[in-house]
């Protein structure tokens, strides 16, 4: 059978996933379980049915049509789905009149996804942009990814790979020659904490950073690397962590990394969790105050001496004092 991938979303004109305006493809399935995940619908590698309470009319059509009786409604008319027994037949989605039910994860062949991306070509190329593979963890579908990347490279698209690093090293290596830019997430230096926040220690991720460095050097690849660190309130937003990451990067990778971005936390994906029926502990978490991000940026600049560009992007909480420019 031809290669297929599960994609949750294709986002045209994305301004925040690498240089310029980009088309970002979100692949489904992830190897980490970050507490702050912004794209919870990309975590599981199977198709999932999502339900929007606001749209639901309570007609029970979905319940009636489900062949395996996976759907029920509780007394408050809240939809309950038994994900274990759901076979993703999508009959409920089809029958739902209100579009309250949707399938997260659409199957694409290489050809289909390629055609879809090429439609955006004049817009993304003109703005010095390209295509970003994101997710989830795109490298979990590496065979598909390589095929797609090859075709896109033939048309000289700029390609970026957004990875959490928690992948078999050969997957990463296999994609590097086809990749212009790696957006590599480095979240937490303390492996124990890393395990608490993301479900896994960071050893493999750090190892992959070295693997990537050596591979790029040995083969003389032009691949650029950006490191991205999410600032999560009460988790990764500590001075020690930012200092440790900065220090580590400066020691080992200073020649190779062209940008280190600190990304501000926001809880705007709360509704996504709601649709999946997952309660999310960070739903009520506030934005970081601008003062704190400014301070962390200073820490980062101090620790990461020698790194080319260190910047913050994202939303911050407004304070009384007028904050200075924060973006680079």
């Amino acid at each position: 059978m031809a290669l297929q991938a599960l994609v949750t979303d294709i986002h045209s004109l994305s301004a925040h996933d690498g240089p310029g305006m980009r088309t970002t493809v979100f692949f489904k399935g992830c190897s980490l379980r970050c507490a702050w995940c912004h794209n919870p619908e990309t975590i599981r590698k199977e198709q999932e049915i999502t339900w929007e309470a606001e749209k639901c009319l309570g007609c029970h059509a979905c319940e009636m049509v489900c062949p395996v009786k996976a759907i029920s409604f509780n007394r408050e008319s809240n939809y309950i789905i038994d994900r274990e027994s759901c076979i993703a037949c999508e009959l409920c989605v089809e029958v739902c009149p209100a579009e309250a039910l949707k399938t997260a994860g659409e199957k694409y062949s290489v050809e289909e996804l390629y055609e879809r991306i090429v439609k955006d070509e004049p817009f993304i190329k003109g703005a010095g942009g390209g295509v970003t593979f994101s997710g989830g963890e795109p490298l979990l579908q590496v065979d598909f990814l390589k095929e797609l990347a090859k075709k896109l490279k033939e048309r000289s698209f700029h390609l970026a790979l957004d990875t959490c690093g928690m992948v078999p090293p050969e997957h990463l290596q296999g994609m590097l020659p086809l990749t212009d830019l790696v957006l590599f997430d480095l979240k937490e230096m303390d492996s124990r904490k890393h395990k608490v926040f993301t479900g896994a220690g960071n050893e493999r991720i750090l190892r992959n950073l070295f693997v990537m460095r050596d591979y790029i050097r040995e083969r003389n690849l032009k691949t650029e690397v950006w490191i991205r660190t999410p600032l999560i309130p009460g988790m990764t937003d500590t001075e020690e962590n930012i200092y440790a990451i900065g220090d580590f990067l400066a020691q080992e990778f200073s020649g190779m990394i062209s940008r280190w971005e600190l990304l501000g936390f926001n809880n705007m994906c709360t509704t996504k969790y709601r649709k999946l029926g997952i309660s999310w502990p960070l739903a009520e978490e506030e934005l970081l105050p601008a003062g704190q991000t400014r301070y962390l940026l200073e820490v980062a600049r101090k620790a990461g001496k020698g790194l080319k560009e260190i910047s913050f992007s994202g939303l911050t909480r407004r304070e009384k004092v007028v904050p200075p420019r924060m973006n680079g």
Partner: peptide, 13 residues
């Protein structure tokens, strides 16, 4: 969402 809107207009970046 209302909350989203509120947060959004607060952005400084």
């Amino acid at each position: 969402d209302r909350k989203f809107q509120e947060e959004f207009v607060q952005r400084v970046n």
